[in-house]
């Protein structure tokens, strides 16, 4: 058996990311998904419009991300004093107080990585739709899978609520426009991570670029 033949055989298999049970891929109907027999984790989908939705959701995400950084997230009132916080002002005040490690880590986890992931989704979908950037898409997909575990937007949203509960009773608390943008962004981020599987993007990439070369 040649390496090529071996790889064709290997590509018919899939290993569950959660419990590592081996499965043979089967054909599924449009819009359906295949689940792991053992742990019920979704293995793959049949989604014809994965690139369209990747592009649309990516752009929407970037817009929401910009909005969530332009306005205050939350505002508090205490004895006539008003103060607000945004993602950037929060990171700056950590730096001002000398908490560089915390500041840099927080900046990466809730600002730089989430933004990079969105840009990668948009770039990938666009390149694969137009059939250009054979090697770039490969690099981007590798980068994407390394970044995904390090985006913590949903944890941050929960943290905002926890922080506010600590303040309620002492201060008046108002949510800013950016908070709601961030909540929408979080929902979109969860949707993307549930519905766009890295393995499917790789398969699609191989169909788009490698079949052409033959």
């Amino acid at each position: 058996m040649t390496i090529d033949e071996e790889n064709i055989v290997l590509d018919r298999l899939i290993i569950c990311s959660k419990c590592h049970t081996l499965h043979h891929k089967v054909h599924i109907a449009k819009g359906k998904s295949a689940k792991c027999e053992n742990c019920k984790k979704v293995l793959y989908h049949y989604d014809e419009r994965i690139l369209d939705s990747g592009l649309a959701l990516g752009i929407t995400g970037i817009i929401l991300f910009v909005i969530s950084n332009m306005f205050p997230l939350v505002q508090v009132e205490f004895l006539g004093h008003e103060q607000y916080v945004s993602i950037t002002s929060m990171i700056f005040s950590l730096f001002e107080n000398g908490f560089y490690v915390v500041g840099i880590t927080v900046a990466f986890l809730i600002f730089i990585f989430p933004l990079m992931i969105l840009i990668i989704y948009v770039a990938l979908s666009w390149m694969m739709m137009t059939g250009q950037g054979r090697d770039t898409t490969k690099e981007l997909l590798i980068l994407l899978s390394k970044l995904l575990p390090w985006s913590m937007i949903e944890i941050y949203v929960v943290s905002i609520l926890v922080a506010l509960v600590k303040l309620i009773g002492y201060m008046q608390v108002h949510f800013g426009l950016s908070f709601w943008a961030l909540v929408l962004f979080m929902i979109l981020d969860i949707y993307l991570s549930k519905n766009v599987h890295i393995g499917e993007l790789w398969e699609l990439r191989n169909r788009i670029y490698c079949d052409k070369g033959r």
Binding site: V76, H81, Q83, M90, L94, T105, I155, S159, V162, M171
Partner: peptide
């Protein structure tokens, strides 16, 4: 990371 984020938010928000 929840607690760290909470501390970061409070540091950014409450400095009167």
């Amino acid at each position: 990371m929840v607690d760290v984020f909470v501390v970061a938010i409070l540091t950014g928000l409450v400095h009167m």
